[in-house]
Amino acid sequence: MRLILGGKLTGFHPDAKRGAVEVKLAGPTRIDTLLGELGIPVKEARVLMLNHKKAFLDSLVKPGDRLGIFPPELAFNLYVALELAHNDEESKGEG
């Protein structure tokens, strides 16, 4: 799969500074599991984009997918903010 890390999250992969990096997946993997493997704290993964669409911590990433992970300080712009509004609504709904 191809991984794009935003802002300071580039520090969690040696090659992420200069763009998308290839990450080998054994099979479908939950995003939160992948975050754990990369060492990225869940609270730093504010915006998740799987194949250009919003994703959630329990979404499954498969080989060949493209995943963007962005921290809270990059969570701006209309689209992203709307995504956040959605995630917040959902988490409020669950709580």
């Binding site: 794009i4 984009m49 962005f70 921290p71 809270p72 300080e73 990059l74 969570a75 712009n77 992203v80």
Partner: peptide, 22 residues
Amino acid sequence: PVTGEGLPTYGTNVLQNVINEA
């Protein structure tokens, strides 16, 4: 976080990757 950290560190062009992924 956006006005205190994201914009000062990376500038507005931090949107390039974000909007591309969107």
